[in-house]
């Protein structure tokens, strides 16, 4: 139920869904079936605001093969980040709306909002999680 597939399924509908523990209220992103905090499994879906800040980032020049297939690599870097959401949890996601070729200009602490990135993947079109500087 609170699986990777379900999380990715919500992303395809452009929703950022985490899991909230019905017992202690802890919010998890990505969602998970068991609360390590209070050891309950009374999870429920919880939509996140998608607002947060960049805790750390990088601009990748030597790309993994799946990103090379999307046209990235040497000469065309992409940015990716650890984002801390307003609700507390952090997540790794692509950072768009910034110039990955000028990483000196990207700042830790930048306020961001969720963006749903439509990419061409092996199985066809898919929506990936991303963040962009908040408007």
């Amino acid at each position: 139920m609170f699986t990777r597939d379900a999380f990715v399924g919500w992303l395809q509908e452009k929703k950022l869904m985490g899991a909230r523990c019905g017992k202690c209220g802890q919010v998890y992103l990505p969602p998970r079936p068991y609360c390590p905090s209070c050891r309950s499994s009374e999870m429920e879906w919880h939509e996140l605001s998608g607002r947060g800040e960049v805790a750390a980032f990088t601009a990748v020049h030597v790309a993994p093969t799946f990103m090379e297939k999307q046209g990235f690599g040497r000469g065309k870097p992409y940015a990716t980040a650890v984002v801390r959401l307003q609700e507390g949890p952090g997540i790794s996601a692509r950072l768009v709306g910034v110039d990955a070729a000028r990483p000196e200009e990207i700042k830790v602490g930048t306020q961001v909002e969720v963006d749903f990135l439509e990419v061409e993947a092996e199985g066809g079109k898919q929506v990936d999680l991303a963040f962009r500087p908040a408007t």
Binding site: A56, F57, T58, A59, V60, V62, A63, P64, M67, F72, Y78, T80, A81, V82, I91, S92, A93, R94, D128, L129
Partner: peptide, 13 residues
């Protein structure tokens, strides 16, 4: 890794 993080990328972060 699915977010595009490579190993150098994680330490770069």
């Amino acid at each position: 890794a699915s977010a595009g993080f490579t190993f150098p990328g994680l330490y770069a972060a």
